[in-house]
Amino acid sequence: MENCQCSHGGAALGPGVGEAAGRDLAQPSRRGFFHVCMAAMTGIAALVVAFPIFSFLRLPKRIHTAKSIEVPLAGLSESQALFFEREGTQIVLIYTNKEAKAYDAACTHLGCLVSWDQNDRVFRCPCHGAVFDDQGAAVKGPVNMPLKKVKLEINKGVLVIA
């Protein structure tokens, strides 16, 4: 009895329990068997509860509607940058020297979103002052990796970012 750690601890059992417990010491197999069963069932129950909870805390699948981005060439202008979202990343599209270029707008330093400064024709990062030119190369600030290029296709006067 003394060694029994279980919460049913004999309290729920009627008279005659003492004798049974006495026998248990000499012949522990029966009570031991029930303990193993209880432990196994408790374990299974714990898993059944824990599985959905831990699953819930995993990352959810996101729905992405716009897979490819299409912009008519006529809609591009030298004075303006266009921002798009594609599968959770921000893409910036610029048009300089009669050429369209697209980059992942996340700064290659620590990932803030760059903005396009049309006067100086550079990308500026608001976080720690990185500057990138229109080719994406780093020209100033705490970073020397260029902005990540995004592939463009031109199809019958329509610019496509696949």
Partner: peptide, 13 residues
């Protein structure tokens, strides 16, 4: 709706 259809086990919770 997002919880019910996208979060793992969200429908259950």
């Amino acid at each position: 709706t997002f919880v019910k259809s996208n979060v793992p086990m969200g429908w259950l919770i």
